[in-house]
Amino acid sequence: MKASAAGYARAENLRHAIEMLVASEGEGRVLAGGQSLVAAMNMRLSAGDLLVDISRLNELSGVSQEGDTVRIGALTRHAQVGADPIVRARVPLLAAAVAHIAHAAIRNRGTIGGALAHADPAAEFPACALALGAEIHVEGPEGDRSIPAEDFFEDVFTTALEEDEILTALSVPAAETGEVQLIEEVARRSGDYALAGLCLVRRAKGHRVALFSVGPKPILATGAMTALDAGDVDGAVAALTSEIDPPSDTQASAAYRRHLAGVLLRRAVARLEGDRT
């Protein structure tokens, strides 16, 4: 169908964008890569928005490393994330996740900040952010703040972002020596949203496990993490399947997704073991 937008404005800089969001009194929508928003507009799931186009704000794009932290600008496109040498070396989980996200033309235009702010529970990047223990940086009329990923994702398509705030970047700890980061998912077809997906990070401090497409938001599987730290894979699978409450839809039932989560954890652990040898 044809989208109906109430208005459009191109932001000249971040401040300008925030001013427009404030001025739009709740009707404003931040338009970045547009790969979810424009689709929703075309399906008339979202109509009458005042669009604040931030896609030209170059200062929000790009990857940099400061000490042990890798900072990824919100407007860095999926394809850039996947190809970036810093990401590939120091945040391999994000690079690996890119291959699972939709298709080339979508990855050319979709942005990592957009994916995080959209907070689709079936999307890869939010779960990656959770598994990595990322900080999400936002800017609003009162200035900037940082939100740990664990506090950022609240519900289906719902985050801690206020309606006049803009997500500007995320920062993640650069992988330490020996750190392993893995993503496993099962989708019906290449590029489809996963029926269930799992990110596993093993650091000196311990394991981190985050799942996607198994609940209203990405889920940090703390029980499974504790069990993995103790070397108990069966216990981790048991914990995992009890700490998720997956949805049922036309693609798969909750029971299937729960089963799949356990399979994915075992597969990820098997890859970890393979990595060790």
């Binding site: 099962v186 019906r188 029926l195 693609q251 798969a252 039932s253 029971a255 299937y256 089963h259």
Partner: peptide, 15 residues
């Protein structure tokens, strides 16, 4: 023959 139908036939899914 969805993944789920196949696993159900295999008796691997418990509701």
């Amino acid at each position: 023959f969805t993944p789920e139908r196949i696993l159900r036939a295999l008796g691997k899914i418990e509701d």
